[in-house]
Amino acid sequence: MEAQVYIIDDDASVRRGLARLVREGGHAVESFATAEDFLATLPAAFTRPTCALVDLQMPGLGGLELQERLKSRPCPCSIVFVSGNGSIPATVRAMRGGAVTFLTKPIHDEDLLGAVAEGLEAHRRLLIDSLQVGEIHCRIASLTDRERETMARVITGMLNKQIAGQLDLAERTVKFHRAKVMEKMGVVSVADLVRICDQAGFAPAK
């Protein structure tokens, strides 16, 4: 998968210089003068590892606001902040908001390329993770209601007898559903089942 780097900076020559450098690192680059332009051209979902180099101070939508907007999207791309004079509060906000790092201009090429690489890697992992979660969701979707009810109780560590009691079923039936769940979810142990359910955010029964 080819990586994509976006540069959002209101200063044209900074944009050009950074773009050259990033291209030198072997990544596809696209530059925007404002955060609004960037958001407008962004596809609905990121399909390849993406890292955005964002200037903290821009007319209109600033870097931190852009970060907020991106977070509301699925699998938001990594953000590397660059700034001429970042205040400590702004830096703290940026990092807590999940930025890869915060670089101060002028930026050394290795620092920049390192940060970009880090950001791309982080996003790649995120994408892969999200792909896996998608798969798990598919499997969950293939379960029947009974099977889902059973699974929600299995992952809490309940015994078949207890499940049968709660769902008002025969213990044999529960056993049957449980084997189906293990098969459909593609796991061999309860421990694996607990892990992927957790990964997919499947809530255990209360």
Binding site: D11, S13, V14, R16, G17, L18, R20, L21, V82, G84, N85, K105, P106, I107, H108, D109, L112
Partner: peptide, 10 residues
């Protein structure tokens, strides 16, 4: 810093 950043990158 802006022009300096651009100069350094270039």
């Amino acid at each position: 810093n802006q022009p300096l950043a651009a100069i350094l990158s270039n």
